[in-house]
Design a protein around this nucleic acid. Structure first.
Lengths: 124, 124
DNA sequence: GTCGTTGCAAAGCGTTTGCAGCCTA
DNA sequence: TAGGCTGCAAACGCTTTGCAACGAC
């Protein structure tokens, strides 16, 4: 199975790369749809799944939102900030660290996920 | 609209209180179903929604799981630990703190959510 | 021309809602 | 008895999948 280059795939990847923050499927459809009108949701879902497997995309799960978001992989370790007003999600660099001291003895920590909430610089 | 006490409501609340960790609707149905066989999912969904509004329940969102979990409200500030092996979720006391220093200037932090992953003491 | 890709529509999955009958107060 | 509560099934929103037409190579 050799993959082929199509306008849809190109537009989807270009859009996600360009916005540089986690985006959901509906946003991708809208964004990539400006380059390729009429793009179908199944195509976007298939593209992000392929991106995840290929390793250039990662999932971002936002508590309270049933819809999965996606962003480019390969960034430095970071977390996310969701604006309580406009709903946009931003990357935040840095990490509190030393989290393994929080867990009970006998448990082993392998990873963590942190989401901050508040108001972004536009909505303050 | 005066609420009435029913076996289902009692069983649902008793189960959630008893397990003392976040549980999903399917788990509640199974657990409460031992006291009240044949309990319907709609009843559980309506009960947890009522619990949220009444304030004795809080939602717990687990990244990567589309299903919302619930636990008793009123606990001290805490976070959650999900076992990568058995999938169970445990409360972890404590908090890294000083998170507002992570966000860009111009942003205002109002809240945060942290989930740790790894192996619980049973699955190590 | 081959066969991976696309868009549509149908199917899945968790959750919500309409409704007739049940049961608490 | 009144009207809130329950279970069933249909409806919903997001995501996945089947399928015939399309188009990259």
């Amino acid at each position: 199975m050799v993959s082929r280059r199509t306008d849809q795939q190109t537009a989807i990847r270009a859009f996600i790369q360009e916005v540089d923050r986690p985006v959901r499927v509906d946003e991708i459809m809208q964004g990539a749809g400006e380059s390729v009108p009429g793009i179908g949701s199944a195509t976007v879902y298939r593209a992000v799944k392929a991106g995840l497997q290929a390793g250039w995309l990662v999932e971002v799960h936002l508590p309270g939102d049933r819809r999965t978001a996606y962003e480019m992989a390969g960034k430095d370790h970071h977390h996310h900030f969701e604006c309580n007003n406009c709903g946009k999600v931003y990357d935040v660099e840095g990490c509190p660290g030393h989290l393994s001291k929080l867990i009970p003895s006998g448990f082993v920590m392998e990873d963590h996920e942190l989401v901050l909430y508040g108001r972004c610089n536009v909505c303050v």
